[in-house]
Each structure stands twice: as C-alpha cells, then as structure tokens.
C-alpha cells in the first residue's frame, strides 16, 4: 500500500524532528546549568587551569605543526596563481587574510574538536559509565560544577589562543616559503599585508569567530560526554558524535558569522 508507506515516512520525519528538538532543548537547559554552576569552578581556579592544560597545552603540537604546513601550502598555491597575474607582492595579503579570517579559526576549531573535544567527551563519558559522576553526586559534590564547568571553560579559554597560534604559525610558514624559499621581497610581503589587513575588520572578527567556535566545541564535548550512554559503545559513539557535530556546527556557524561580519566589505 503506497499511501500507508507515505504516512509511515511522514511519521518518521515527524518523530525525528521531535527527537532533535527535544535534544536541543535538553542541550540548552544543560548549557544554562553549566553557566549557572560556573562561579564555583572559577572560585577554584586550579580545576580550570588543569583543564586548560589538557585542552590547550596538549593540543599545541598538532595546532602549531598544522598551522605551519597550512601556511606553507597556502604560500605555494597562492604564489602559483598570483604569479600568473604578476601580483606576487600580494602573497602576504592572500595568506594573512585567509588565515586570520577563515582558516585560523575554522581549521584550529576542527583540530581542537578532534583532539580536545573528543578527549573531553570520552573522559566525562567514561566517568559516567564507571559511576564516578554518581559517586560524586552521592558525596554531595555537583558534577556539573566539579567536572563539567572546568572543562567547558578550559576549552573556551584555550580555543582562541590556539587559533591565534595557528594563524601566526601559518603566516610564519608562508613567510618561509614566500620570502626564504621563493625569494619574494621581505618588505613587500609584510608591507602589503599590513596595509590590507585591518585590526578591527579582520583580526578582531577572526578572534570573535574563534571564541564562538570554542564555546561550540566545548559545549558539544561536555554535553555529549554527560549525555553518553553509560556503556563502552555509548562512550565511543558519543566521542564520534562530538567530532561530527562540532565540525558541522563550526562550518555552519562560520558561514553565518561571515555573512554578518564581512557584509558590505568589498561589495
């Protein structure tokens, strides 16, 4: 019966929509609860510092190395294209704007999600699966304040710094390739870059993006961990979900932010 099949299909769409909405609602309440419990996490700064160590310091290597390579590739590819139009001197502009506006926040966000976000989810999920969160609650210690909030804020603090380091190393990598390897003029490289990159329009907006991505990744990571099914499969699928959801949300949010930020520039 085709009609029946259609009805069943529509019902499935409805059920999925409701499930997604319910989850979003739950995530929003969770977000509010984490923010509500944050003052306790700040009062004991040591807890948050520890999470900055795990989220930020341990992500340093991947961020620095990736940033450097991305910058070097950008310089090679950019030079190849710019050279055709005799605009070699604009290489610094191309690299700096790509990194500061887009690649820095976005790629650092993606790397951060897969390095630190997944680790946060796995850690919290494992604590849940082994009753550590329940044990904490039975000891009259709120896991939201003791476990979740410090990780959340550790991620938010780490992410903009990592994005800035990514962009910086990218510019450095591009300088290595462009100036040291290809032999472009050092003065033109930096001079044109400085003339074209604006502090408010480019640097500040890029920074805002990286803060937003930090909030997104941290929230998804702690939420998925806290919400994970308390089993081995539950934790592993929650970890996967963290990476996938973070990547999609970062890219979507990046589009929205870009529309608002760079509207009217160059148009």
């Amino acid at each position: 019966m085709p009609a029946e099949r259609v009805v069943r299909g529509v019902r499935k769409v409805g059920a999925t929509t409701l499930a997604i909405l319910q989850r979003l609602g739950f995530a929003t309440r969770f977000f509010a609860a984490v923010v509500w419990h944050s003052p306790q996490a700040f009062r004991r700064l040591q807890l948050t510092l520890r999470e900055i160590y795990f989220a930020g310091v341990l992500s340093l290597v991947i961020i620095l190395v990736s940033g450097m390579f991305v910058g070097m590739v950008l310089a090679l590819q950019g030079y190849d294209v710019l050279n055709r139009y005799g605009a070699n001197d604009s290489l610094g502009i191309l690299v700096a704007l790509s990194l500061v506006r887009e690649l820095g926040p976005v790629v650092a966000g993606l790397l951060f999600a897969s390095r630190a976000g997944s680790a946060i989810t796995a850690e919290i999920g494992l604590m849940k699966a082994t009753d550590q969160l329940a044990a904490m609650e039975m000891m009259a210690v709120d896991p939201l304040a003791r476990v979740v909030a410090p990780r959340f804020w550790g991620g938010i603090v780490s992410m903009p710094l990592l994005a800035a380091l990514f962009s910086t190393l990218g510019v450095f990598g591009a300088w290595l390739v462009g100036v040291k390897l290809i032999g472009l003029d050092n003065g033109a490289f930096w001079g044109n870059m400085q003339a074209a990159v604006d502090f408010r329009e480019d640097i500040v907006n890029g920074f805002i993006k990286s803060v937003v991505f930090g909030v997104i990744v941290s929230l998804i990571a702690v939420f998925e961990g806290y919400d994970a099914k308390p089993t081995a499969e539950g934790v592993s699928s929650a970890t996967t979900r963290t990476v996938v959801e973070s990547a999609l949300t970062i890219l979507a949010a990046d589009f929205v932010l870009t529309v608002f930020m760079f509207r009217g520039v160059g148009v």
Binding site: V100, A164, L165, S167, T168, V171, Q194, V197, F199, I203
Partner: peptide, 12 residues
C-alpha cells in the same frame, strides 16, 4: 600570537 597578529599582520 594575538599581539603578533595585531601588530605585525594587522595594522593596529
């Protein structure tokens, strides 16, 4: 890195 971006890359 933020200062570098602001001063050396940007034109703060």
């Amino acid at each position: 890195a933020l200062i570098f971006l602001s001063l050396r890359v940007g034109n703060l």
